[in-house]
């Protein structure tokens, strides 16, 4: 387990919004079917934290458990919406050269160094990150 600003920044919203395996957004249910269950189990915060690779204290678990349960409950209302079977809502036969696709022309980002300076730590041209395992 580690505490990394990079990981925390990206992982926390994911944890809160996604739910656990036993939560509302069960992987196998995702794109195929509309789920009619509005009542869902509250996710296990400790398991969520483990999947997000973050440490949580017992106090945090106790404090977050009801909050997350509330959030998940709120999202569960989405299940009651009558949506088409294919949530991607892909249009019939959109042409391949649709305006949504980008032309393959390289562009240099002018303020590259400024972007890299935003990294918490650097070494030479590299971004320095904590050990991974």
């Amino acid at each position: 387990m580690l505490r990394s600003s990079i990981l925390l920044r990206t992982a926390i919203p994911t944890v809160y919004l996604r739910g656990s395996q036993s939560g509302i957004l069960k992987q196998s249910n995702l794109p195929h079917h509309r789920c009619n269950v509005s009542k869902v189990d509250s996710p296990d915060v400790r398991k969520l934290a483990e999947m997000a690779q973050i440490e949580v204290s017992d106090q945090e678990v106790d404090a977050w458990q009801p909050q997350i349960a509330e959030i998940v409950e709120w999202f569960a209302h989405l299940q009651d919406l009558d949506l088409p079977a294919d949530p991607s809502g892909s249009p019939e036969g959109s042409p391949l050269t649709d305006s949504r696709l980008r032309e393959d022309t390289p562009r240099d980002w002018p303020e590259r160094e400024k972007l890299l300076d935003e990294a918490p730590d650097r070494e030479g041209r590299f971004v320095k990150v904590p050990k991974i395992l």
Binding site: R107, W109, L115, V127
Partner: peptide, 29 residues
Amino acid sequence: STKTKAFCGCANVYGAKPNTHVCPVCLAH
């Protein structure tokens, strides 16, 4: 074999100096 990355306009090249083909999209700003 494309000239640019999958989701941004940075060049898709092998062997360049580290972090020379980056932008806010591929750095997830």
